[in-house]
Simulated scan of single mutants.
Amino acid sequence: MEASILLVGGDDFLSTLLNRIRNLVSCTVEVAPTPSEAVPLIQAQQPDLIILQGNLPGGLELCRQIKDQARLAWIYCIVLDSPVQMLERAWLDRNWEMDCRIEALENGADAYLWLPQNDPHGEILEKEILLQQDRLLRAQIVSGLQMVKNHRELMRTNDILSAIALSDPLTELNNRRALDWELPRQVANARARAEPLSLVMLDVDYFKAINDTYGHPVGDRALQLISSRLRHNLRFRDTLFRYGGEEFVIILSNTDQQEALLVARRLCRLISDQSFAIEENLDLNLTISAGTASLKHVDDSRGASLLQRADQNLLQAKAAGRNRVFSCLDTSPQPDAENVPAARENE
Protein backbone atom coordinates (compact mmCIF):
# COMPACT_ATOMS: atom_id res chain seq x y z
CA MET A 1 0.00 0.00 0.00
CA GLU A 2 1.31 3.44 -0.97
CA ALA A 3 2.41 5.65 1.89
CA SER A 4 0.24 8.62 2.84
CA ILE A 5 1.61 12.01 3.89
CA LEU A 6 -0.25 15.05 5.18
CA LEU A 7 1.32 18.50 4.76
CA VAL A 8 0.14 21.18 7.15
CA GLY A 9 1.24 24.75 6.48
CA GLY A 10 0.66 28.04 4.72
CA ASP A 11 0.35 28.51 0.97
CA ASP A 12 4.05 29.21 0.35
CA PHE A 13 5.07 26.22 2.48
CA LEU A 14 2.67 23.89 0.69
CA SER A 15 3.51 25.08 -2.84
CA THR A 16 7.24 24.71 -2.18
CA LEU A 17 7.02 21.30 -0.53
CA LEU A 18 4.26 19.52 -2.44
CA ASN A 19 6.06 18.76 -5.71
CA ARG A 20 9.36 18.40 -3.89
CA ILE A 21 8.05 15.49 -1.82
CA ARG A 22 6.30 13.84 -4.74
CA ASN A 23 9.60 13.81 -6.60
CA LEU A 24 11.41 12.24 -3.63
CA VAL A 25 9.14 9.37 -2.55
CA SER A 26 6.19 7.40 -3.89
CA CYS A 27 3.23 8.49 -1.84
CA THR A 28 -0.17 10.11 -1.76
CA VAL A 29 -0.06 13.66 -0.42
CA GLU A 30 -2.91 15.56 1.23
CA VAL A 31 -2.66 19.19 2.29
CA ALA A 32 -4.24 21.28 5.04
CA PRO A 33 -3.51 25.01 5.40
CA THR A 34 -4.32 25.15 9.13
CA PRO A 35 -4.21 22.78 12.12
CA SER A 36 -8.00 23.05 12.54
CA GLU A 37 -8.49 21.83 8.95
CA ALA A 38 -5.92 19.09 9.50
CA VAL A 39 -7.69 17.55 12.53
CA PRO A 40 -10.65 15.92 10.67
CA LEU A 41 -8.29 14.59 7.98
CA ILE A 42 -6.05 13.04 10.64
CA GLN A 43 -9.01 11.51 12.50
CA ALA A 44 -10.58 10.07 9.35
CA GLN A 45 -7.57 9.02 7.28
CA GLN A 46 -4.80 8.53 9.85
CA PRO A 47 -1.89 9.33 7.48
CA ASP A 48 1.41 7.54 7.93
CA LEU A 49 3.37 10.75 8.24
CA ILE A 50 2.66 14.44 8.89
CA ILE A 51 4.96 17.30 7.94
CA LEU A 52 4.15 20.48 9.87
CA GLN A 53 5.35 24.00 9.13
CA GLY A 54 7.39 24.92 12.18
CA ASN A 55 6.28 28.54 12.55
CA LEU A 56 2.61 27.84 11.72
CA PRO A 57 0.29 29.14 14.50
CA GLY A 58 -1.04 26.14 16.38
CA GLY A 59 1.26 23.72 14.54
CA LEU A 60 3.19 22.47 17.56
CA GLU A 61 -0.04 22.21 19.57
CA LEU A 62 -1.40 19.93 16.84
CA CYS A 63 1.70 17.77 17.09
CA ARG A 64 1.28 17.48 20.85
CA GLN A 65 -2.43 16.60 20.48
CA ILE A 66 -1.60 13.77 18.08
CA LYS A 67 0.99 12.28 20.42
CA ASP A 68 -1.36 12.52 23.39
CA GLN A 69 -3.90 10.20 21.70
CA ALA A 70 -2.99 6.52 21.93
CA ARG A 71 -4.73 5.61 18.68
CA LEU A 72 -2.85 8.33 16.76
CA ALA A 73 0.49 8.47 18.57
CA TRP A 74 2.12 6.11 16.05
CA ILE A 75 1.80 8.73 13.26
CA TYR A 76 5.26 10.05 12.45
CA CYS A 77 5.47 13.85 12.82
CA ILE A 78 8.18 15.94 11.18
CA VAL A 79 8.38 19.63 11.98
CA LEU A 80 10.04 21.51 9.14
CA ASP A 81 11.30 25.09 9.12
CA SER A 82 12.21 26.58 5.77
CA PRO A 83 13.24 30.20 6.34
CA VAL A 84 13.31 32.34 3.24
CA GLN A 85 16.61 33.92 4.26
CA MET A 86 19.31 32.89 6.71
CA LEU A 87 20.69 35.37 9.24
CA GLU A 88 23.84 37.39 8.62
CA ARG A 89 25.73 35.74 11.46
CA ALA A 90 26.06 31.99 11.39
CA TRP A 91 26.07 31.60 15.18
CA LEU A 92 22.75 33.46 15.44
CA ASP A 93 21.36 31.20 12.77
CA ARG A 94 22.52 28.09 14.67
CA ASN A 95 21.01 29.34 17.94
CA TRP A 96 17.71 30.02 16.21
CA GLU A 97 17.70 26.58 14.67
CA MET A 98 18.59 24.96 18.02
CA ASP A 99 15.75 26.75 19.84
CA CYS A 100 13.24 25.70 17.16
CA ARG A 101 14.47 22.08 17.27
CA ILE A 102 14.17 21.90 21.06
CA GLU A 103 10.66 23.37 21.03
CA ALA A 104 9.52 20.94 18.32
CA LEU A 105 10.87 17.88 20.12
CA GLU A 106 9.43 19.06 23.45
CA ASN A 107 6.00 19.11 21.77
CA GLY A 108 6.29 15.50 20.63
CA ALA A 109 7.77 15.84 17.15
CA ASP A 110 9.60 12.73 15.97
CA ALA A 111 12.03 14.78 13.89
CA TYR A 112 12.93 18.37 13.12
CA LEU A 113 14.39 19.65 9.85
CA TRP A 114 15.91 23.04 9.08
CA LEU A 115 15.95 23.63 5.33
CA PRO A 116 16.55 27.32 4.48
CA GLN A 117 15.73 28.40 0.93
CA ASN A 118 18.26 31.22 0.51
CA ASP A 119 21.64 32.24 1.84
CA PRO A 120 22.19 35.32 4.11
CA HIS A 121 22.26 37.62 1.09
CA GLY A 122 18.90 36.46 -0.21
CA GLU A 123 20.36 34.50 -3.10
CA ILE A 124 19.14 31.00 -3.95
CA LEU A 125 21.32 28.28 -2.46
CA GLU A 126 23.71 26.43 -4.70
CA LYS A 127 22.39 23.40 -6.53
CA GLU A 128 24.61 21.04 -4.52
CA ILE A 129 23.17 22.33 -1.23
CA LEU A 130 19.59 21.97 -2.49
CA LEU A 131 20.34 18.40 -3.56
CA GLN A 132 21.80 17.73 -0.14
CA GLN A 133 18.62 19.10 1.44
CA ASP A 134 16.50 16.81 -0.74
CA ARG A 135 18.59 13.83 0.32
CA LEU A 136 18.11 14.76 3.97
CA LEU A 137 14.36 15.28 3.54
CA ARG A 138 13.96 12.00 1.65
CA ALA A 139 16.05 10.09 4.21
CA GLN A 140 13.93 11.46 7.07
CA ILE A 141 10.66 10.62 5.32
CA VAL A 142 11.81 7.09 4.43
CA SER A 143 13.03 6.55 7.99
CA GLY A 144 9.70 7.72 9.39
CA LEU A 145 7.68 5.56 7.01
CA GLN A 146 9.80 2.54 7.92
CA MET A 147 9.07 3.11 11.61
CA VAL A 148 5.33 3.32 10.85
CA LYS A 149 5.54 0.14 8.77
CA ASN A 150 7.31 -1.67 11.60
CA HIS A 151 4.65 -0.47 14.05
CA ARG A 152 1.80 -1.69 11.85
CA GLU A 153 3.43 -5.07 11.33
CA LEU A 154 3.89 -5.38 15.08
CA MET A 155 0.22 -4.50 15.62
CA ARG A 156 -0.84 -7.12 13.07
CA THR A 157 1.34 -9.69 14.79
CA ASN A 158 -0.14 -8.76 18.16
CA ASP A 159 -3.66 -9.02 16.71
CA ILE A 160 -2.89 -12.51 15.40
CA LEU A 161 -1.39 -13.58 18.72
CA SER A 162 -4.36 -12.13 20.58
CA ALA A 163 -6.76 -13.97 18.30
CA ILE A 164 -4.87 -17.22 18.92
CA ALA A 165 -4.85 -16.63 22.67
CA LEU A 166 -8.60 -15.94 22.70
CA SER A 167 -9.62 -18.78 20.39
CA ASP A 168 -10.30 -22.44 21.15
CA PRO A 169 -8.28 -24.47 18.61
CA LEU A 170 -10.69 -27.42 18.49
CA THR A 171 -13.99 -25.62 17.93
CA GLU A 172 -12.64 -22.25 16.67
CA LEU A 173 -14.94 -20.55 19.17
CA ASN A 174 -13.98 -17.84 21.63
CA ASN A 175 -12.41 -19.48 24.68
CA ARG A 176 -12.72 -18.91 28.41
CA ARG A 177 -10.05 -16.23 28.39
CA ALA A 178 -12.08 -14.36 25.79
CA LEU A 179 -15.15 -14.66 28.03
CA ASP A 180 -13.19 -13.23 30.97
CA TRP A 181 -12.39 -10.22 28.79
CA GLU A 182 -15.76 -9.80 27.07
CA LEU A 183 -18.20 -10.34 29.93
CA PRO A 184 -17.11 -7.29 32.01
CA ARG A 185 -17.35 -5.16 28.87
CA GLN A 186 -20.87 -6.42 28.16
CA VAL A 187 -21.90 -5.81 31.78
CA ALA A 188 -20.62 -2.23 31.60
CA ASN A 189 -22.39 -1.61 28.28
CA ALA A 190 -25.67 -3.04 29.55
CA ARG A 191 -25.61 -0.83 32.63
CA ALA A 192 -24.58 2.28 30.70
CA ARG A 193 -27.46 1.77 28.24
CA ALA A 194 -29.95 0.50 30.83
CA GLU A 195 -30.44 -2.68 28.77
CA PRO A 196 -30.96 -6.26 29.98
CA LEU A 197 -28.17 -8.83 29.72
CA SER A 198 -28.43 -12.59 30.07
CA LEU A 199 -26.24 -15.69 29.95
CA VAL A 200 -26.85 -19.27 28.89
CA MET A 201 -24.50 -21.96 30.15
CA LEU A 202 -24.71 -25.25 28.23
CA ASP A 203 -23.32 -28.70 28.94
CA VAL A 204 -23.35 -31.76 26.65
CA ASP A 205 -25.17 -34.58 28.44
CA TYR A 206 -23.26 -37.79 29.23
CA PHE A 207 -20.23 -36.59 27.28
CA LYS A 208 -17.81 -38.76 29.25
CA ALA A 209 -19.63 -41.82 27.94
CA ILE A 210 -18.80 -40.78 24.36
CA ASN A 211 -15.07 -40.64 25.09
CA ASP A 212 -15.18 -43.88 27.09
CA THR A 213 -17.16 -45.77 24.41
CA TYR A 214 -15.81 -44.38 21.14
CA GLY A 215 -12.55 -42.64 22.08
CA HIS A 216 -11.48 -39.01 22.28
CA PRO A 217 -11.32 -38.38 18.50
CA VAL A 218 -15.04 -39.12 18.29
CA GLY A 219 -15.63 -36.89 21.31
CA ASP A 220 -13.66 -34.08 19.68
CA ARG A 221 -15.65 -34.45 16.47
CA ALA A 222 -18.91 -34.34 18.42
CA LEU A 223 -17.83 -31.07 20.07
CA GLN A 224 -16.96 -29.57 16.70
CA LEU A 225 -20.36 -30.46 15.25
CA ILE A 226 -22.24 -29.22 18.30
CA SER A 227 -20.28 -25.96 18.21
CA SER A 228 -21.07 -25.49 14.55
CA ARG A 229 -24.79 -26.13 15.04
CA LEU A 230 -24.94 -23.71 17.95
CA ARG A 231 -22.94 -21.02 16.16
CA HIS A 232 -25.12 -21.12 13.05
CA ASN A 233 -28.35 -20.88 15.01
CA LEU A 234 -27.60 -17.86 17.20
CA ARG A 235 -28.86 -14.36 16.75
CA PHE A 236 -26.47 -11.71 15.47
CA ARG A 237 -26.13 -10.16 18.94
CA ASP A 238 -25.31 -13.44 20.72
CA THR A 239 -21.69 -14.42 21.47
CA LEU A 240 -20.73 -18.08 21.92
CA PHE A 241 -17.76 -19.29 23.99
CA ARG A 242 -16.32 -22.71 24.74
CA TYR A 243 -16.02 -22.46 28.50
CA GLY A 244 -14.07 -25.69 28.91
CA GLY A 245 -14.46 -29.38 28.15
CA GLU A 246 -18.05 -29.91 26.97
CA GLU A 247 -19.35 -26.65 28.50
CA PHE A 248 -20.35 -23.57 26.52
CA VAL A 249 -21.46 -20.06 27.51
CA ILE A 250 -23.53 -17.65 25.43
CA ILE A 251 -23.73 -13.94 26.17
CA LEU A 252 -27.17 -12.63 25.18
CA SER A 253 -26.96 -8.85 24.92
CA ASN A 254 -30.16 -6.79 25.26
CA THR A 255 -32.01 -9.95 26.34
CA ASP A 256 -34.17 -10.34 29.44
CA GLN A 257 -34.87 -13.49 31.50
CA GLN A 258 -37.90 -14.61 29.50
CA GLU A 259 -36.13 -14.20 26.15
CA ALA A 260 -33.04 -16.03 27.46
CA LEU A 261 -35.20 -18.97 28.50
CA LEU A 262 -36.77 -19.14 25.03
CA VAL A 263 -33.36 -18.97 23.34
CA ALA A 264 -31.97 -21.75 25.52
CA ARG A 265 -34.99 -24.00 24.92
CA ARG A 266 -34.72 -23.48 21.18
CA LEU A 267 -31.03 -24.45 21.23
CA CYS A 268 -31.76 -27.58 23.25
CA ARG A 269 -34.31 -28.67 20.66
CA LEU A 270 -31.88 -27.94 17.82
CA ILE A 271 -29.34 -30.30 19.38
CA SER A 272 -31.74 -33.11 20.27
CA ASP A 273 -33.98 -33.08 17.18
CA GLN A 274 -31.33 -34.21 14.69
CA SER A 275 -28.57 -36.76 15.20
CA PHE A 276 -24.92 -35.96 14.50
CA ALA A 277 -23.10 -37.81 11.71
CA ILE A 278 -19.75 -38.36 13.41
CA GLU A 279 -18.36 -40.86 10.93
CA GLU A 280 -19.71 -42.68 7.89
CA ASN A 281 -21.21 -45.44 10.02
CA LEU A 282 -21.68 -43.61 13.30
CA ASP A 283 -24.54 -41.26 14.13
CA LEU A 284 -25.02 -40.05 17.68
CA ASN A 285 -28.15 -38.70 19.29
CA LEU A 286 -26.97 -35.98 21.64
CA THR A 287 -28.68 -33.63 24.06
CA ILE A 288 -27.62 -30.65 26.14
CA SER A 289 -28.66 -29.19 29.47
CA ALA A 290 -28.73 -25.45 30.04
CA GLY A 291 -29.02 -22.85 32.77
CA THR A 292 -29.83 -19.19 32.21
CA ALA A 293 -29.34 -16.08 34.33
CA SER A 294 -29.94 -12.36 33.86
CA LEU A 295 -27.99 -9.38 35.14
CA LYS A 296 -29.10 -7.83 38.44
CA HIS A 297 -28.10 -4.50 39.92
CA VAL A 298 -26.32 -6.33 42.77
CA ASP A 299 -24.08 -8.29 40.38
CA ASP A 300 -20.38 -7.43 40.33
CA SER A 301 -18.88 -5.51 37.42
CA ARG A 302 -16.98 -8.50 36.07
CA GLY A 303 -20.09 -10.65 35.79
CA ALA A 304 -18.74 -13.39 38.10
CA SER A 305 -21.95 -13.62 40.13
CA LEU A 306 -24.03 -13.63 36.95
CA LEU A 307 -21.97 -16.51 35.58
CA GLN A 308 -22.22 -18.36 38.87
CA ARG A 309 -26.05 -18.20 38.78
CA ALA A 310 -26.11 -19.54 35.24
CA ASP A 311 -23.83 -22.38 36.38
CA GLN A 312 -26.07 -23.16 39.37
CA ASN A 313 -29.13 -23.26 37.12
CA LEU A 314 -27.28 -25.59 34.75
CA LEU A 315 -26.63 -27.94 37.68
CA GLN A 316 -30.33 -27.79 38.50
CA ALA A 317 -31.22 -28.79 34.94
CA LYS A 318 -28.82 -31.73 35.07
CA ALA A 319 -30.08 -32.83 38.47
CA ALA A 320 -33.65 -32.76 37.15
CA GLY A 321 -32.82 -35.31 34.45
CA ARG A 322 -30.81 -33.48 31.75
CA ASN A 323 -31.96 -32.47 28.25
CA ARG A 324 -33.72 -29.42 29.66
CA VAL A 325 -33.31 -25.76 30.64
CA PHE A 326 -33.52 -24.25 34.08
CA SER A 327 -33.73 -20.56 34.90
CA CYS A 328 -34.83 -18.45 37.83
CA LEU A 329 -38.23 -18.27 36.13
CA ASP A 330 -38.69 -22.04 36.41
CA THR A 331 -40.13 -23.80 39.45
CA SER A 332 -39.70 -27.30 38.03
CA PRO A 333 -37.67 -27.62 34.82
CA GLN A 334 -39.27 -29.72 32.08
CA PRO A 335 -37.59 -31.57 29.20
CA ASP A 336 -37.12 -29.30 26.22
CA ALA A 337 -37.28 -32.00 23.57
CA GLU A 338 -40.62 -33.53 22.74
CA ASN A 339 -39.32 -37.04 23.28
CA VAL A 340 -36.46 -37.80 25.62
CA PRO A 341 -34.69 -40.92 24.22
CA ALA A 342 -35.12 -43.91 26.51
CA ALA A 343 -31.72 -45.22 25.48
CA ARG A 344 -28.98 -43.36 23.63
CA GLU A 345 -25.74 -44.50 22.08
CA ASN A 346 -23.67 -42.16 24.26
CA GLU A 347 -25.13 -43.15 27.63
Rank of each mutant, 00 (worst) to 15 (best):
7 L>P: 01
28 T>V: 08
14 L>C: 09
19 N>W: 00
26 S>V: 14
36 S>N: 11
34 T>C: 02
34 T>P: 08
17 L>H: 09
37 E>T: 14
32 A>M: 04
8 V>H: 00
16 T>Y: 14
7 L>Q: 03
26 S>M: 08
19 N>A: 06
29 V>A: 01
24 L>P: 10
11 D>C: 08
8 V>I: 04
11 D>R: 10
25 V>I: 12
35 P>M: 13
26 S>Y: 07
31 V>T: 12
24 L>T: 11
21 I>V: 12
13 F>L: 05
10 G>S: 07
28 T>I: 05
28 T>A: 10
34 T>Q: 09
1 M>K: 04
16 T>E: 06
33 P>L: 04
22 R>K: 13
36 S>M: 09
3 A>N: 13
35 P>A: 09
27 C>Y: 09
25 V>Y: 12
30 E>R: 14
10 G>D: 10
37 E>N: 08
16 T>W: 04
1 M>S: 14
22 R>W: 08
7 L>S: 01
25 V>N: 07
14 L>E: 02
2 E>V: 03
29 V>K: 12
14 L>K: 15
28 T>R: 05
32 A>Q: 02
28 T>S: 08
23 N>Y: 07
30 E>P: 09
31 V>C: 07
36 S>G: 02
17 L>W: 07
11 D>S: 14
8 V>W: 00
14 L>P: 10
8 V>R: 02
8 V>Y: 04
6 L>Q: 01
34 T>A: 05
6 L>C: 04
17 L>N: 05
8 V>F: 00
15 S>D: 07
12 D>K: 06
15 S>W: 03
33 P>E: 10
4 S>C: 01
22 R>H: 12
9 G>Q: 10
34 T>V: 05
23 N>V: 03
32 A>N: 12
25 V>P: 14
5 I>A: 04
3 A>I: 00
31 V>F: 14
5 I>M: 00
13 F>S: 15
1 M>A: 11
25 V>F: 12
22 R>E: 09
35 P>L: 08
7 L>T: 01
10 G>L: 11
32 A>H: 07
37 E>W: 01
29 V>H: 13
7 L>Y: 03
17 L>M: 13
33 P>V: 00
20 R>Q: 12
7 L>A: 01
21 I>S: 08
13 F>E: 02
29 V>T: 06
29 V>W: 06
3 A>V: 03
